[in-house]
Design a protein around this nucleic acid. Structure first.
Lengths: 136, 136
DNA sequence: CGGAATCCGAGGTGATACTG
DNA sequence: CAGTATCACCTCGGATTCCG
């Protein structure tokens, strides 16, 4: 990507959008989406399809109602997730991925699978590291 | 993946993404790595190659020394990054990706590029959402 | 220069209670 | 059921200072 310094873009949107730069809007968006709960929610929705609030809370193990609500709101606000309220009694609220969310979920899933594959290696590395650094 | 001994396997219920289960070791690893700063650091190292501490601090815009140190330690401890101290004066410490880190960086980079591409869409979605939910 | 140590405020967590 | 509200924590992250 923007590996080498391009000549200063002449006030064009050809300007390098780099998430590494704090000033870039994409950086703030990145910080909002790259969140532990948000990514797990995306994975759950991508794997099991649309789910109710309580299903998500059970699916994404360990998430509190507060954080689940908050993360879903963020995902909804950025156009990644659709929230549908079915006016029944008791009420039924279903969350589903929008195209934008499906795109990101497709990129996130490999990280989940990679983590599962490589966890043994990383746990071994931890042990080695901790033995080499007994003090701290 | 399903590293640990399965308790009385409650029938099927075979999860494909163990990272969603709190009990699975990969979940804790995932939570450690899926961190804003860690991912930005990986992107910087992947894009610009090995870098010194101060270079990383300038490259990953906005990161404090504390969080940079902490994130680098975590990455080092899990075997993703190698820390090399050159005994000079002033001291020179260089960080570089290990194979494991290169693997993850390759998965993270697309998310960064995707964020940059889709930021305009998400900002638009935000505006729409905020207008539809004036109360908050 | 590359941290470690310290302090401190913001924000996440869990429990509980309440609403529509 | 799907939240919101509140409170008591307690961890996290930023700023500052000090050290080899």
């Amino acid at each position: 990507m923007t590996t080498q310094e391009q000549p200063p873009a002449p006030a064009e949107e050809a300007r390098e959008l780099d998430v590494l730069a704090q000033c870039c809007p994409s950086r703030a968006v990145f910080a909002e989406l790259v969140d532990k709960w948000s990514m797990l929610i995306l994975m759950s929705l991508a794997e099991f399809g649309q789910q109710r609030f309580s299903e998500l809370q059970r699916g994404v193990d360990g998430v509190s109602r507060k954080m689940l609500t908050q993360s879903l709101r963020t995902l909804e606000r950025n156009g990644l997730v659709k929230r549908t309220v079915h006016p029944e009694t008791p009420p039924r609220v279903v969350y589903d991925l929008l195209p934008l969310g499906r795109e990101l979920a497709a990129l996130v899933a490999p990280i989940g699978r990679w983590t599962e594959e490589r966890t043994p290696l990383m746990l071994a590395a931890r042990t080695e590291f901790d033995e080499a650094h007994p003090a701290g």
